[in-house]
Design a protein around this nucleic acid. Structure first.
Lengths: 220, 220
DNA sequence: TAGATTGTTAATCGATTAACAATC
DNA sequence: TAGATTGTTAATCGATTAACAATC
């Protein structure tokens, strides 16, 4: 399908392109140039053209890109029209928020099951989707063949569960736990969302800021 | 303080080092080499030594690194002992989960205020921290001088609120909204957590996987 | 001392930017 | 046609890896 392995840096920019093109489209914009995109997204025009040309020549010289067509193209590269079967494991604060808040459908996924190890949580439901007990995971996976698991568990449990799910045939892991998941199968893909690490980046930034916001204490 | 501007790639690895060293420490490990670290973290030993040497020579030739000392060093580089005053704006599913779930204290932050525009939400509290109405934000900031804001709002509101907060002297933004925040002040730092983009990365991965998990449909 | 492992310089690799011919 | 903007090649920049002398 794709000529050559596309670099992760490029792939990570695709959703932003997709999102912004969607905005333009809904504003009724028909045409856009790499120059305009670059301004709005804070990238160079060159980079945008390079990125897009990893997947094909979607533009027209002298004209630019058709907003709707490009939006569609990138959407299909990302796979937004898919319905990848996804499950969420761990329905504490975070798991519930992710299940509720994230628009799985618009990301090419379908939430087909929720699981929690706490017997008081299992048996209930979240917006109509029933929460099962983690013990029933094996049976569920054999029946329903989910492909993607969202892990909202403590680190230890996340590692153990990921391994179990890997054996059950799942191939994609969205990991919100504070654990480094190393899986057997090299085909498995893991996307980590390390919230604390992300926050620490800001803490670092505040520490090493040229001009402190409220110059109160003296930092040596 | 620091010799030279340290690259963002290095900074993003620091929290992982910090976290892993904390684990080693609590396991009672005293000594660690860049080789051991590299194995556990899936990086090269060379890179780890390079990274650490951005901040100083923390190791001893022929021996390696003292776990506790290095943990401490990285912690202080990140600023985990700070108590940066932070506020959360928007207490929907996600905002509540972030406020509850993220360990602000261990990331050098202190949660001093929660805000929501919904009058039914404002006035209540979350684990003892009162939720204020967004209208009272200006007064609060003048009194309390928060430095960091967690934005859990819809895109439009996030953009408007960030600008308002910038004017009120805040300098760091942890942005969970699906918006590109471009702020006036170049000193402002923004850390985006684009959950949908992150999920789309996995969707893309599943699409472009060599071996499909459950080879059902034929993909052309 | 011999062995190990760092700190650091040099080499490589990859990603971003610049430039420009192709062409709508 | 003239103007604009792409696709693509070449140049630059930065980050990662390799190598090795310094030294504990």
């Amino acid at each position: 399908m794709t000529k050559q392995e596309v670099s992760p840096s490029v792939i990570r920019r695709l959703p932003r392109y997709y999102r912004f093109l969607g905005d333009l489209k809904s504003q009724g914009k028909v045409r856009v140039s790499s120059g305009e995109l670059s301004q709005a997204l804070g990238l160079t025009a060159s980079q945008i053209r390079q990125d897009l040309n990893c997947f094909g020549g979607f533009g027209q010289q002298g004209y630019g890109y058709q907003v709707a067509a490009l939006h569609e193209e990138i959407g299909s590269i990302l796979g937004v029209k898919n319905r990848r079967r996804a499950i969420v494991i761990g329905l504490g604060n975070l798991g519930r928020a992710i299940a509720n808040h994230v628009n799985f459908e618009s990301c090419g996924c379908e939430l087909i099951g929720l699981f929690d190890a706490n017997p008081f949580v299992a048996g209930r439901d979240l917006d109509g989707i029933p929460i099962h007990h983690t013990d029933t995971l094996d049976g569920f996976c054999h029946m329903e063949h989910p492909e993607l698991a969202v892990l909202c568990l403590p680190a230890d449990a996340a590692i153990a569960t990921a391994q179990r799910l890997e054996a059950l045939g799942l191939r994609a892991f969205w990991n919100f736990s504070h654990a480094d998941l190393h899986l057997e199968n090299p085909d498995c893909i893991v996307e980590n969302v390390y919230l604390d690490d992300s926050l620490l980046t800001l803490t670092y930034g505040l520490n090493h800021m040229q001009t402190p916001a409220h110059p109160t204490e003296t930092k040596y």
